[in-house]
Design a protein around this nucleic acid. Structure first.
Length: 556
RNA sequence: UGACCCAUGGUGUAAUGGUAACACUACUGAUUUUGGUUCAGUCAUUUAAGGUUCGAAUCCUUAUGGGUCAACCA
């Protein structure tokens, strides 16, 4: 566990700061805007920010960046908190940028008094026009040189609600010729007669991100304010406000956000998928949201492991979904209870097994975990096996059931296929097999070695359930990078419903918190749509399947 | 015709002027009462050109490629 792992670039910076004595301990924060659900990309940021203060002395705050009342809602606050807790992290303080609205207003008046901010009566379009372009300097507003007194009075009136929305803004007086567009007199406050999810109708002016974020960090004495790459140009402004206000010098550091193959990661796109019914909800198991992954059956451990494997850097990357799948499989293999479930049944009759007889077989709940115990599985004369597990004219490498061939029924007997029964149209309806009484699992004295082992279920004892088989949401690796609308590339087979599968009776006692491996099928978890009359399972991920892979290669 | 950020196998991340490595993927083989797991192995990497140096993935220059910036969004 304690093996030396190299530090990522942020850990290196912090390690150095601590060793130099620049800080005695560190403070980080996770600053979501409560206007959407958290996704796997946020998980990276959460693991980073909270992970840093686990690794180094310090703590992490949760601060909602709620400066825009028209898009933000309490519903999102609640889901975000739930997701962070579920991922296994604890914040020191639960904070809101809106907690600082009074302080921020005071900061604004300080800047006005220093001659560093002014009220602009220009319209939004006029401000945009005066801004210039990345290659062209901007122009000063005619309101730029208002007196301090006038600015103070106007800001007060803005605050009091004397002006309509959009009629005036407070701007920082910096440099309209800066090569950094953000330094061209950025807007600090805008008028919005809107009700805020926490401050209600107290305010009708709201600070912009740039005038709220850095100062909020500073108020909380955040030492390392970590954000994504698109905020790099904001750093100059971040530092400017802190310097002019002469407040605690928090510092901003940027890392690259993560993209993943076969999905999309922007809130806007995810919202479209929900609104346009490509998925059912934010927590649809196909969504890359934390709530979607949770419902899909992913574990917090596996997501944390994934984030650690992916690491952090300063370049935008597209990570293979296969890596996330590896992380869940690895964890699920250790904890999932094994159960036998037949999806597409083929009836077999054990002709030499006495009519009406049955017996209980014993099988490990999880061979990877010796403390997981065993369960009993009823065996009888009539069983279901998977249709795929029989082939009338098998290829040489097929080692499942075929006419005259033997296979092991998992945790039960070796059987031999004696006769294939067909209906008038030539469809196979059932198989007649014989079993080897001395081949019982655990006390096999036959000395016969069979290559194939099949899962099965006793027909009279089987229980039924519904199973939802999920696959990647998109047909292409990078849907955002294709021609046309990304939604044209949604995978039409991302959900396959199997309304009735046949399971061994032990599955009757399935619990929501448990994970299951349906042997040879994949990992499954109970879905919240389960009712007393119908169990519903979601497939988290398939098992690795080298046989299927080989078959596929032949087709291609 | 600007400024800023970035460039290491198929993917992701290390190597901090001194033998380019780890994980995933892919492929072989062994084990296996899950074609799972486990184990052993194989393939495969420094964007380019100059420069500094005994020595460069690392430092410098230029080029190339990718990204970001012109919401009263965050």
């Amino acid at each position: 566990m304690s093996e030396e792992k190299s530090l990522n670039f942020l850990e290196e910076i912090i390690d150095e700061h601590l060793r130099e004595g620049k800080y005695k301990s560190i403070v980080t924060r996770f600053p979501p805007e409560p206007n959407g659900y958290l996704h796997i990309g946020h998980a990276t940021s959460i693991c980073l920010n909270f992970g840093l203060t686990k690794k180094f002395e310090g703590y992490t705050n949760l601060r909602f960046d709620d400066t825009n009342p028209v898009t933000e809602e309490t519903e999102y606050v609640d889901s975000i908190k739930e997701d962070i807790k579920w991922l296994g992290f604890e914040w020191k303080h639960e904070l809101y940028a809106s907690d600082y609205f009074d302080k921020l207003y005071e900061f604004a008046t300080i800047l006005i008094k220093k001659g560093l901010a002014y009220v602009d009566d220009s319209t939004s379009a006029e401000i945009a026009a005066m801004k210039g372009t990345p290659t062209e300097e901007g122009k000063n507003s005619v309101f730029r040189n208002r007196s301090i007194e006038e600015n103070l009075i106007l800001l007060e009136q803005m605050k009091n609600g004397d002006f309509p929305d959009g009629s005036r803004t407070l701007r920082a007086k910096i440099d309209m010729a800066s090569t950094n567009m953000l330094m061209r007199d950025p807007v600090m406050y805008r008028i919005k007669h809107a009700s805020h999810h926490r401050t209600g109708d107290k305010w009708c002016i709201y600070p912009m991100y740039d005038f709220a974020h850095g100062q909020s960090d500073s108020i909380e004495e955040v030492t390392h304010s970590i954000c994504t790459l698109e905020f790099v140009p904001h750093r100059e402004l971040y530092d400017w406000f802190i310097e002019k206000l002469e407040i605690y010098p928090s510092k901003q550091y940027e890392f690259a956000r993560r993209n993943m193959t076969y999905t999309v990661m922007s809130k806007r796109k995810l919202l479209q998928l929900v609104n346009e019914k490509h998925v059912e909800s934010w927590d649809d198991p196909r969504m890359p949201t934390i709530s979607g992954l949770r419902r899909r059956g992913y574990t917090p451990e596996s997501i944390r492991d994934f984030c650690e494997r992916v690491g952090i850097s300063k370049r935008e990357t597209l990570i293979e979904m296969g890596l996330l799948e590896f992380s869940v499989r690895e964890h699920l293999n250790k904890i999932a209870l094994r159960r036998m479930v037949v999806f597409d049944p083929l009836k077999i009759v054990i002709t030499n097994y006495p009519q009406g007889q049955s017996e209980n077989m014993v099988s490990d709940n999880n061979p990877e975990d010796e403390n997981s115990g065993t369960r009993e599985i009823p065996f009888s004369r009539e069983l279901y096996i998977e249709k795929d597990d029989f082939m009338e004219n098998p290829s040489k490498k097929y080692f499942r059931l075929a006419p005259g061939q033997m296979v092991r029924l998992k945790s039960a007997y070796i059987i031999k296929c004696e006769e294939v029964i067909k209906d008038s149209s030539g469809e196979i309806t059932e198989l007649h097999c014989s079993y080897l009484p001395e081949s019982k699992s655990g006390s096999d004295t036959t000395g016969i070695h069979v290559k194939g082992t099949l899962h099965w279920v006793s027909i009279p004892d089987a229980i039924s359930a519904e199973v939802r088989l999920y696959d990647r949401l998109f047909r292409v690796e990078d849907p955002s990078n294709e021609d046309g609308d990304f939604k044209d590339y949604v995978n039409p087979d991302s959900l396959k419903l199997v309304t009735t599968v046949y399971a061994e009776p032990a599955l009757k006692h399935a619990r929501f918190e448990d994970r299951y491996q349906f042997i040879r099928k994949g990992y499954f978890v109970l879905d919240k749509d389960t009712s007393p009359s119908r169990m519903v399972f979601n497939r988290t991920v398939t098992l690795k399947d080298n046989w299927a892979k080989e078959q596929k290669k032949k087709v291609d």
